[in-house]
Design a protein around this nucleic acid. Structure first.
Lengths: 221, 221, 221, 221
DNA sequence: CATGAATGAGTCTTCATTCAT
DNA sequence: TATGAATGAAGACTCATTCAT
């Protein structure tokens, strides 16, 4: 066995630990209010060590961001090749819901620090992805209300991972909450399709979603 | 005639100008990234002058906040005395929509700086008001999904004043956008009531709302 | 009588003291090696106080520089209006010698920190003035050797205020040294004129100049 | 045949490359402003590698310095054994001019970083050599003006390799410039001797220098 | 012969805040 | 009603240097 770091410091994983701690602190107190000193101290290294691994504070954030965009990019790639049906839209929402849950800290951070992020290089990359997904759900030339509904569905899901959760301070399981939010979002886009008379397959309930990625097993009626 | 500031600076209204400029800068670049120096410079006074009018930086924010809560408080008071019908819920949304539009900078700011605001005294006051309105729409003991829908409707409207607008980069009038968002939000709570079998009055359209606060004239079909 | 600062700090003159101390330290240890902390400590204020008076470290240097350029600019202005005779050139050298002596710390600094200064905004301004004076002495289209002589004369004088002085560690009075250097420089330009056959007035020796601004007494008309 | 670096980096010559790159950067931006990171990056090794070859940053500079002092030391040795005639002085200048040209980057660096170098161990060694050469040209007990002339001649040559060159932005070949500067310097010491009535050999032109080190062939009349 | 990882001291600079005037 | 002058604390970042591997 190699010397498994009894020597006071988990070796090698510093870079990853910086990302982890930074995300937690950024999400908790905001990007500007989190100092590199705090991050370094919590990890147990010096500020200078952070600069060995990342060129700037913003760079840490970028690295965190890019850590989580893989699933989203796959979702976009998948979405582009599907037919533009309501069922596709629903499946996108289901998958997006899962991706969101995995990266909930990051999304919460992006949402709650939007004002500051606007001045960062990150901003454009993030915004673009958001826009693309919205377009995947609501066809480019769709009527205003349908497009609003699509974006609203997305934001509902974003809010679902933290803001809405705060309003539900009772004992609501996180998976239960996720599914409830998902169902609401799904319905929004289904409604949009109905109203605008698209090639809506049956849309009575969120039943068909059974295809699975929306969750394990059928959602309770 | 009133002394129309021959001296290049409107005298007397400094306090108000501080609030205005501060809100604009806070909303644009975030609370932490906006320095008192910037505010003072833009107004044309010294930093010290800000301290004549406000005790701390946070105080400026509190003053701004309180400037805009009047209408919301009235809405809450009004809501408390209404019967808990779907129609009431819709009317609350309509009025909330208008209040939001008037205080859009502030709401945008609160939303986009949530992470930083969490550490401020303001936070609780703001959060509570939000919670109360949500409760006005979805009865305390309502089923999970209905409550989610209520909160989602509220967030949809919050997002409507800026985030959604960004996705609608075409030439959509701001009033047109507001009404579209409002309609989507209304439908969310109506749907909730239907599903949960409340004493839903007719919900076909946002017609009854004629009481007026939802907008001028009937919304286009 | 007003309270004449028994209160520990000479009031009002902070800005000037910053310039003085900064120049001394810059000249002694170099621009890069002199930290704002050192300057502040020596004056007895905080680093932040420096930033109340100057926007950046470079700004302090610029202010110092501009303090001393007045006489040089006057010299240039005067020179431009004189006939381009050898006598004018000699008078320029004499006046330049005096200006140099007054600003010797600055010139020494500029000379000994040239490498660093090259990256500063100051550089161009300084270089240009240097060039102009050289041109005043050696006519634009003069033969190579004459121009070299003019520049060399200038550099000899620059070096005279410190580098040459170091080689003369015996007891040579500073005024004695200045005049010796000046005489050498004068001769260089006189020789140049002789060789190139300009309208040299008598150039046998640096005698006539004696009365001039190179020492005490009125400059020749 | 020699292993001509198939591996992208000339191996073995790292030490030399450090010296080269360091001198170039030191001369360009100054000693303090040039970081070991820059040097290492430009070479394509890590900072730590520099420390394999040199003990400190200052050590790199010392090594560079010592690289170039050989010719100067030889010149000094030669000079010491010559009779103290004007002709000797001229020959010293001629040889010095050539040595200077070979080590122009270093001399430029020493001149333009004098303020910083003063705090380095190098300083004394360098200054001493300078002093010795000056003494070789102007006899120990010579009158003030003669000594000033000697030092000025030396500084003129130093300045000649860069500062004067800058004033001559036209197309003046570097050899042409060197010779012009040399001629001016020579004349300074010749004049000194004339005035002070030393055993001046003929001084009409820089002809006798034929020994060659002053340049190839007779200088143009 | 070199690197990966890290450090401690220090850099310039900005900030919210204070207070005598 | 304001300002001029200043401060203490902190910020992000860089540097020369070290050392185990």
């Amino acid at each position: 066995m190699t010397d498994t770091g009894s020597t006071r410091v988990r070796r090698g994983d510093t870079r990853q630990r910086i990302r982890d701690v930074a995300l937690r602190l950024f999400a908790a107190h905001g990007y500007e209010k989190t100092s590199l000193r705090e991050i370094a101290e919590e990890i147990g290294v010096t500020k200078a060590a952070l600069y060995y691994h990342f060129k700037t504070k913003e760079d840490i954030l970028v690295a965190i961001h890019d850590d989580f965009t893989g699933p989203i990019d796959e979702l976009i790639a998948w979405g582009r090749e599907q037919p533009r049906t309501v069922e596709t839209a629903r499946e996108i929402l289901r998958r997006y819901s899962l991706a969101l849950e995995d990266a909930s800290d990051l999304f919460r951070f992006m949402q709650e620090n939007a004002a500051v992020i606007r001045d960062l290089s990150l901003h454009e990359r993030f915004k673009e992805r958001s826009r693309v997904i919205a377009r995947l759900i609501s066809p480019p030339g769709a009527p205003l209300e349908e497009r609003v509904r699509a974006v609203a569905a997305l934001y509902t899901m974003h809010a679902g991972v933290f803001a809405i959760a705060q309003h539900l301070d009772e004992e609501v399981g996180s998976e239960e909450r996720r599914l409830a939010v998902l169902r609401v979002a799904e319905e929004m886009v289904v409604r949009a399709a109905e109203k605008c008379g698209r090639e809506a397959a049956r849309t009575d309930g969120p039943d068909t979603g059974g295809s699975g990625s929306g969750g394990r097993g059928p959602a309770p009626g």
